[in-house]
Structure formats: C-alpha cells, structure tokens
Nucleic acid binder design. Structure first.
Lengths: 226, 226
DNA sequence: ATATTTGTGATAGTAAAACTATTATTAATA
DNA sequence: TATTAATAATAGTTTTACTATCACAAATAT
C-alpha cells in the first residue's frame, strides 16, 4: 500500500534551516512540541529544549532564530495540516452542509492520521496552538510578518471554510469573519470548558465529552447563523 | 454637579500594594499603559517603565510582582470599566434587543467618559487588551489564577450579556458561549480589519470606519443567531 | 583515496532582562 | 519633635537570549 506523504508548506523565512531536511531538525520539532506542551511557551527556551533532546543550544539556533519563530513555524504547520485533513475528509462530498459539519468535526476532534509524521504529536501540538496562537497573530510585528507570508497557512484554511459558507448561503454577508470565528471557537470553547467554565455553557444533562459538546455548539451556531 | 467616581474592583492579590492608593501607583498605571501601547508587552519591562516615568525599577516592584501581574490588573480594570459603562448605557431601557445593540456599540466604540480617571488612557488600554488579553487567559497558571479570582471581572461582564441574550430568547442554548464570543469578536474584528484583512470581510462599498463595520457585523451576527 | 564541505557538539562568552537587598532621604502622622 | 512609611538611589544576583569559535565526524566531490 502506498504511504501518503504529507508535504507541509511553511514560509521559508520562518526558519534558518529547514528542520524537515535533517534528523536533528525533526528532533527539534518533536521535542519542542513535547516541552512546550509540558511547561508552556513562556517557560520554554532553547537551553531547556537542547538539554531535553540531548543536544546543544547552539545547534537549535542554527535552525530557528528564536523561540517565537519556532512557535510560528509550529502553528503554521498545524494549520496546513488541519487544512490537509479537512480537504481529505470532504473529498467527493457534494452537500455543502455536510461538508461544513465534517470540517467542524475535523477541526475540533484533531484526529490522528496515518499521514501524521512520527515527529509530530498532533494532540500536544493542538494544546500548544490553543494556548499560544494569539501570540503569533497579535503582536507589534504583525504587519512585517504578514508581508513575509507567515500567515498564509491560516489564510488558506479560512478561505476554504469561507467558500463552504458561501456554498450554503451565497448571500451571506460575512463569510470570512465567520470562518475565522468558527476556527477560534474550535480552539477556545474546549479550553474554556476545561479551565474557565463560566465563559461557556456546559451541558450537565448529557455526558458528552468537552469535544463533543463543542462540536454540538458550533453546529448549532453555524446552523442558525448561515 | 456631583462628580461620578468609579470604583474599579480588581482582585487584591493581583497587586502587592493598591496602585490606586498613591500618586506613584496611579503613575505606574498611567505610564504602563502609554509604554505598553507604544512598544508592546513583550518589549515592555519595569526598567523601561521606571525610566519613562522618572522613577526606579525597585519602586515599581513594590506595587506589582512582575509585568504579567500588571497586565492582568490592567485587563481586569478594563473589563470592570466596560461593564460599568454598559450598565450605565442600558439603564431604564426595556427592550432587550435595544439593550444588546447598545452593549455591542459600547464594547466596540470604547467611548471616553467623564468618569474615566485621568491616569487611564482608555483608547490605549483598549489596544493593549486587544493585543494581550489572551496572554492573561491562556496560560499554564490559569487554574490557580482562576481560584484567586483574577478573572471575575470578565466573568461578570459575560454574565450580564448572557442574561441579555436570554431576555431576547429564553430558549437559546449557549448564552454564555455566545456572550464570550461577542466580546472576543469586538476585540478581534477591528484588529483583523487593520492588520489581517484576509481573516475578515471589509465592506469596500461603504465608507464606514473599521469600528462601524465591526458593529454592523456583530449586530448582523447577533440578529441571526439568537 | 583524498580533499572539501557540511552538520553537529563542546565550550565560552556577552548583553540584557528579571528580579532582590540595602541604605539614604523625604513626607506623613503621632 | 519623634516615629513611621514611602520612595529614590545604588548595587548587586540570577537567568535568559543570543553569538562566536573551534574541533570533530560524516557525507560528498574530485
């Protein structure tokens, strides 16, 4: 059986050397995900990463200028991969409403896939994205980074979902804003259920998992709004 | 004419000494807002703040343990103040839909008010909240900070808007999640229009300002969903 | 087979950030 | 006038973020 190989496109200026080219590079990604997930981005640094993976600080610096660029790379990778999974899942499906439901499930469930490379723990990467995506998009350098193409991966995903919204209702006035909003809801709602339940609505009658509840919520939301 | 005095309640364990008690304290808030707005939270530190306001690093450390706590304080202050403005604006209004529209306008427009203390530049504080609110809510310490009551100010605002949603439609299934979402949209949409326009929809036909466009969008959204 | 390039490890170092501690001085209060 | 509290000034420590250099091993080119 042919193995599916995923090529994740991440803007080349994010890194100094392509981490996918070498074993060390992939190891940096692998252990960066494990460590960031464990101690959080603020506590994370290249010294700890190097010691965690049995390498040296200087070696890591050959791949990424700083930890912000490494985070940006991981988040871009995540969106490109999510986009790939969604496109895979909605292939051959005609009904736009069904397509939307599948996209929502894919976004929230963060299912593992045979195409996930060994060096990426997708569930931990999801946690990292939930906790830190805003650091990538909300900062003083946003305008420069945008010009360098750091955000195209999320943009492409938004475009796909936005197109799907227009297939459901071609008159809908704010397809991109709602696409972006669906993506943000898929990240935040589960986090709120777990950590800040007062900011969302937990269904105490059913015994659905936080993820299933989030899917229900976003479907309800999409159904009413579009 | 009696002057309205706003008492902003911020959880006492955020600060070491109440900044509102002294001139230096208020000066810390004032210049922290100016400086954070100017150089961004990541570049901001107590040394720069002290030099900006003609004081010393050690003096600032007597009020706040670190810059994260200062940010948390400012964000909590912002929500308490927004809540106050909304309650003021919807007084004596019966129609729940009108109340919601007013709340949306208040959230997005961030109008200055005579009750705004001299040491707070509310428009700059708004920028700081837009760019950094997620750092306050998405972090590894969230569970501890929640227990200490760091997030009650946002929670109260969510409760007020959530109640308003139920007044419009008592059957609505996710009042808190949508209240939180409205607040997040009010912060993000304007930022996206300005910095990441591909993530939202700009109306090129009209000549509405980003804020007016955001208000239109959220009203459209609320109207359809609730 | 040998020379050369490339990637990595090891070590060492600098500059700035993030605090802490001490003392002197000034202002408020008893 | 004595006492206390608040602040400024100074001087430190520790950690983070990053740079530079050199040696060695593996891959590649000739």
């Amino acid at each position: 059986m042919p193995q599916i190989h995923v090529t994740i496109d991440v803007c080349t200026s994010i890194y100094l050397r392509n981490p996918l080219d070498t074993t060390l590079g992939k190891n940096i990604l692998k252990h960066a995900i494990i460590l960031m997930d464990q101690i959080g981005f603020d506590e994370f640094n290249f010294k700890k990463l190097a010691s965690e993976m049995g390498s040296t600080e200087a070696s890591v610096y050959r791949y990424f200028e700083n930890k912000y660029k490494l985070l940006t790379y991981l988040v871009a990778w995540y969106w490109d991969y999510m986009h790939f999974l969604i496109l895979l899942d909605i292939r051959n499906i005609e009904d736009p409403k069904r397509k939307m439901n599948i996209a929502i499930e894919t976004l929230v469930l963060v299912r593992d896939n045979t195409a996930t490379p060994e060096y990426i723990n997708i569930s931990k990467l999801h946690t990292i994205v939930v906790e830190n995506a805003s650091k990538v998009y909300h900062n003083k350098l946003v305008d420069t980074l945008k010009k360098e193409g750091y955000y195209i991966n999320l943009q492409k995903l938004v475009n796909t979902i936005s197109a799907n919204i227009l297939e459901i209702n071609s008159e809908f006035k704010y397809p991109k804003a709602i696409a972006t909003n669906i993506i943000e809801l898929s990240l935040n709602n589960e986090y709120y259920i777990e950590h800040l339940p007062g900011l969302t609505d937990q269904d105490t009658t059913t015994h659905l998992s936080p993820r299933k509840q989030t899917i229900e919520m976003i479907k309800y939301y999409v159904d009413r709004i579009i």
